[in-house]
Design a protein around this nucleic acid. Structure first.
Lengths: 224, 224
DNA sequence: CGATAATCTGACCGATTGGACAGGTTTGTT
DNA sequence: AACAAACCTGTCCAATCGGTCAGATTATCG
């Protein structure tokens, strides 16, 4: 049973699920802000407003709690490009993917940062997932891009590198938020900034694939 | 530099610098692999092959050591685009920047990862640098891009977002190495992979700026 | 009601942490 | 040789860590 569905349950299970959710939220924040090692069970308990022993009562150990938080985060990405087929329009699909990925990065920056830290540490917990579910997801999406290329519907770019580019550029604004804000001299992201970033990335990706957004042709300039 | 005691004594200062360098290298590895909180002075000392108290003798505290490691890493990026002017060719400069940045990411992945973790934590140590030296560097480069755009030498893309894109895509292969290797089902990066990535990113950036690499025109396909 | 189970928590524990420091050793100078 | 300065490290320490557990409290049910 997923955490999200448990919260909506009725009866005694509902209370339990709600309390778990409070702790999970506190844990995500603490893990994201301090890293796995830097996060302390005491700090998580304080954020959640419960005694430390209560956290252990619900989740057993620090590592089990961490795993649960990670699992919930992976769930956020489950339906990326979930029902795309080679018959779909490449430009529409890619634009939708970029915008959806970017929206999540701004909506849940801590989830993004926590995942990034897990990978940076060498994915001690997520390694099986990377070589399992995520690898299968990735292979299925690169196959679709290959089909588009073979059908002559987009330029012959490397499918894996295309996906990495979308992943890294969108993730960047969550993971490196402090740096981005410092360099652009802004206190926080506003709606206009998010829109500006989304448009830029969509244009970049589409032009890189030899595609154009309808109504937004990119003026080309000869080199040399 | 010749002295009477050439055999017995290299300069004392040199010995000191060499020992410091050994510890700094061990510290960079430990901080990058375990994070600031996860790294222990004992582990750093073990990696360097010296007693723990010796690390404190040379660097005082864990935070001072960490600051020194970060400072050394920042030095690696000092000469990125250091002597570029609006008179230079945009395509050549951008291609050179991408390749230079990528080369460093593959040569010093730990430096890249350590920097990423510092930013992810909210840049507790580097915040002043972000709002000082790095902000000035960044502003000076965006000004050059703006000059190119005003001169009609490249498409009117947002200069700041262009730089972020180059930063994030190149950094990605160092920071998320585990994920990239898992998804591409390779044990490690080889020279061919590095070349493939470099070419892809150069093409992506140049096409996004309405520029073309000499001899590598990108076939364009209408959308719709 | 009484009893059984589930929930909760203050108090405690061994292990590890960053750091301090006394005292030993080496180096440089006279 | 004698002395001082710099260098080095074994040993200790208070603080904090993740985790345990006995026992109090509350909910559930025949």
């Amino acid at each position: 049973m997923s955490t999200a569905s448990a919260v909506r349950a009725r009866g005694p299970a509902k209370d339990r699920a709600r309390k778990r959710a409070v702790i999970l939220e506190a844990a995500e924040a603490e893990f994201a802000d301090a890293g796995y090692q830097g996060a302390s069970m005491q700090a998580i308990a304080d954020r959640a407003g419960v005694p430390k022993a209560n956290v252990h009562y619900y989740f057993g150990s620090k590592e089990q709690l961490y795993r649960q938080v990670l699992e919930d985060i992976l769930g956020l990405w489950n339906d990326f490009l979930s029902d795309v087929t080679p018959a779909d329009d490449p430009a529409l699909v890619l634009e939708g993917f970029v915008r959806q990925k970017l929206r999540l990065a701004f909506a849940r920056p801590r989830a993004s940062r926590l995942f990034a830290q897990e990978i940076l540490r060498g994915a001690p917990v997520l390694a099986p997932h990377l070589e399992g579910d995520m690898r299968r997801w990735f292979a299925s999406k690169t196959r679709i891009v290959e089909a588009w290329i073979e059908a002559g519907r987009m330029a012959a770019v490397e499918p894996d590198l295309l996906l990495f580019t979308i992943w890294s550029t969108t993730q960047h604004y969550a993971d490196f938020e402090v740096q981005v804000l410092a360099l652009t001299e802004k206190p926080r992201y506003d709606d206009a900034a998010v829109e500006r970033i989304a448009d830029f990335l969509v244009n970049l990706v589409l032009s890189g694939c030899g595609l154009e957004r309808a109504g937004v042709p990119l003026e080309r300039i000869a080199h040399g």
